[in-house]
Design a protein around this nucleic acid. Sequence first.
DNA 1: CTGAAAGCGCTTACAG
DNA 2: CTGAAAGCGCTTACAG
Lengths: 364, 364
Amino acid sequence: MMLTRVSHFSGEDLVAAKRRATSQDVAARAGVSRTTVSLVLNGVPNVRISEKTRARVFLASQELEYYPDAAARSLVRGLTQTLGVILCQTPDRIFADAFLPEVLRGIGEAAQGNGFRVLLQSVEDITRPAAYLHLVREKRIDGIILSGPRADDQQLLRLREEGFPVVLLGQLEGSGIPFVDVDNIAGAKRGAEHLLSLGHRRIGLITNAPLHYTASAQRLLGYRQALEEWGIGFDSSLVRYGDFHEESGKKAMAQLLDLSPPPTAVFVASDLVAFGAMEAIKSGGLRIPQDTALVGFDDVPLARYVDPPLTTIRLPAYELGARAAAMLLDMIQAKKDGEGLLLDTELVVRESCGLRAREAMLIE
Amino acid sequence: MMLTRVSHFSGEDLVAAKRRATSQDVAARAGVSRTTVSLVLNGVPNVRISEKTRARVFLASQELEYYPDAAARSLVRGLTQTLGVILCQTPDRIFADAFLPEVLRGIGEAAQGNGFRVLLQSVEDITRPAAYLHLVREKRIDGIILSGPRADDQQLLRLREEGFPVVLLGQLEGSGIPFVDVDNIAGAKRGAEHLLSLGHRRIGLITNAPLHYTASAQRLLGYRQALEEWGIGFDSSLVRYGDFHEESGKKAMAQLLDLSPPPTAVFVASDLVAFGAMEAIKSGGLRIPQDTALVGFDDVPLARYVDPPLTTIRLPAYELGARAAAMLLDMIQAKKDGEGLLLDTELVVRESCGLRAREAMLIE
DNA sequence: CTGAAAGCGCTTACAG
DNA sequence: CTGAAAGCGCTTACAG
C-alpha cells in the first residue's frame, strides 16, 4: 500500500488528472513536510521557519492552485467558519422582506471580512423542534443570527444554555440573549418631535402593529415622550392601530379624519401603513402636507417614490446586519459575551411633512 | 493509547460531559459496529441487516441524540449537500432586491426538500478572479446558482469547462450554460395585447433599461410582436428608454405626453419605471386610466399599493428560485445536463389599465 | 528550524 | 448478516 499517495505527481499531472492539489502535493513540490505547509500557509505565529522555506511553500501552493479542503479543516479544528442566518416567517414578513437584501448585505460583508461564510435557512415554523437545531448539531455553523425570534422557541433557549453563540435580530425581552435592534423609542420620538417643531400641536398616531409587538409598543412610547416633553397631553382618541399592512393605514386615517377637528399631522409608525394613510387623505380630497402632514417610519425603498415623497425615520438595515454579524463574530472568535445593541435611526426629510414647502416659501 | 475512545461512556455521561455523540457511541450502545450504524442510519440499500439490529441502532441514535458530523461526512463523501447562491451586484440592484426574498425562499424550499443547505455569497465585483471560485475549490458547495451573470466572468467559464454544476438566474446568450429566466418576450407581448384588446391603437413603450440588457431587448420585441399581430405598424417615435429607475420613467412619459397626439396607453416594461410614469401623468393633470392607460412589468410588491393600483405582468420570483434549485439538484444528484428554462408570466389586472373601470360601467 | 505520527468522525470496500 | 481496517485531507502536540 502506498502511504504517500501522489507526492511524486507533478503540477501538470494534477491538472491532467483534474485532481485538486492537497497539502501533500504542496509539501512534495516545496520539498518540505505537510506540517510545514500548514504552518506557513496558516501563518501560525511563533514558529521559526526560514524565509526561504516560506517562499518555496507559497510558490508551490500558488503553482498548484492549492485551496485547503474546508471539510478536512473543519473536522480537525471543530470550526466551520460559517455563520447561520435563520429567517423566521413572522406576520410582518412583507415589512421584513423590504429590508432583507440590505440586512443580508450587511451580514455578508462583515462575515466575508473575517473569512466567514453565510448559511441561510428560512424557517416557516420556528417552534418546530428541529427547525434549525440540526445545523448546530451537525456542526455546519459556528454561530447563529436569528431574525424574528419567538419566546416559545425551545431550541433557542437550549442553545443559549449550552453557550452556543446566538445573536438576535430583534429582541426577546427578559431573555438576556444578545441582540441588535433599532432604537424604536428614540426613533419614534424623533418623528413626533419633527412634527412638533413644525408647529403641529394636534398630532395623531397610527401604530405599525398591535401593541403586543415590542416594536409597536416602543414606537407608541416614543411618540408619548415627545408630546410630554413639549408639554402636550397624550390624547388616546388620536391613536389608531395598524397591522403591518397598507389597508389598515387607510382605515385608521379615515377615522382620524372624521374627528373634529381632525389632527393637522399624523405620525405613522410604518411606511407601508403610511402609504394607506396617504390614500385615505387624498381620496378625502385633502392635500399632503398642507391639510395633513405625515411622517412615516422605516424608510422602505419606495418611500421616496410615493406622491408626495414620504418623510420618514430610517431604519438602518445594512448596519443592523453588519453589527449583528460583527457581534456574533466577536462571540465566536474572542469568546466575548454578546450584549444588547440599539441602533440609531435617522430622520429623512422629504415632502410629506411640509418642511420643504415651508423652506421654499421662506426663500421666495 | 485508547483506540475506542469513549465506547464505554453511557448516554448520561455524554450529556454530563457536553460531548456530542459519535457513531462510535451509537455503535457501542446498540452493541454493533460503526459500519452497521452507518449502513442503517443512511438506509443503504441491498444490505441485509435484521430488523432487530436496525431497531437497536435507531433507538440508540435517538437516545444519544446523534447527528452525523457534516465535516466528517463531507470529507469522506466528497459532497457537501450545500448549494452556493451567488448574488452579483448589477445596475438593476434595486429591481432585483425587490424579488430577492421570494427567490431565496424558492431556492431554500427546493434545497431543504432535498436535504440541501444554502450558502449565500454577495459579490460586488464578479469579474474579480476569486470572487466565488474559492467556494468551489475549498469544496464548500456542490453546485452554484448564479444571479446576474456577466459575459466577462472568467471563473464562470472555467467552472463550466470543468463540468461543475452551474445554473444561471438570468441568461448568458450563446454560452450554453443552463439557466432559468422569465419569458420576457411572451410577457411583454401579453402586456401590449392587453392594451390592444381594450381598444388602444396608439400605444407607447417605455423600456425597463437600455437595449443592451437582454431583458430589455426582449421586452421590446414582445411589444413589437403584439403590434404586428394586430396589424399595427411599429412606430419608433412612441418608444422611450428607461434605466431601471423611477426618475427615467418620469422623463420618458413627459416626452410621450408631448407628442401630438400623445399615446392613449403606455406599456412600461418595469414597475419602478412605471411609478415614475404615473407621476408624470398626474403632474400633467391627466388621469389614469381615463386619459392614459398603463401596464407595467414585474409586479413588485408595491404595484398594488400605488394610486391607481398598477396592472402589470407578474414575474414569478418564487418559482424562478425553486426551478433553478430543482434544476441544479438534478444536475448534482442525477448527473443530468441542465437546460434553458423560460418561465411564464401572468397578467395581473388592477386599475391602471382601465379594464376594471370599463367592467364597472357595463354592469351599472 | 523541521518532520513523523496521531487523530478529527465519518464511509466503504473487503473479508468472513 | 456483521466487523476490522483503511482512508478522506487536514492540524497539532511532540520529538528532535
